[in-house]
Amino acid sequence: MSEALLGGIVVFVLATYLGASLIGRVPPTLHTPLMSGANAVSGITVVGAMLVAGAGFGWLSNVLGFLAIVFAMMNVIGGYTVTDRMLEMFKKAPGKESPK
């Protein structure tokens, strides 16, 4: 087993454990923003997509890389924007009346 793979597995296992302990404490009321926020974070594949599209590997890599960037950026921009839109609506009970 290569050093790089082993290091990657260590990182993966620890991050999974950390993720599980953090997400277990997210209140149910925020589960939908959590999921759209997770979409945004999974848009991190944009890094891999940019490396593929920008490496000058040839037309096939360019096309696949371009599409991969488009998909990943839908997640990044779409995910963060819609999560922000939702979280903005979550308000605590104000003194009494809430203005429209």
Binding site: V11, V13, I23, S42
Partner: peptide, 30 residues
């Protein structure tokens, strides 16, 4: 998320592995 983590292994990039693992565990728990 798990797919993103696998991509991280392919291009040897830890930030993909970490982010993918976070998203992977979130979805499983939900």
């Amino acid at each position: 998320g798990i797919a993103a983590a696998m991509t991280g292994f392919v291009i040897r990039n830890e930030v993909l592995i970490v982010s993918g693992a976070l998203v992977g565990s979130s979805g499983i728990i939900l």
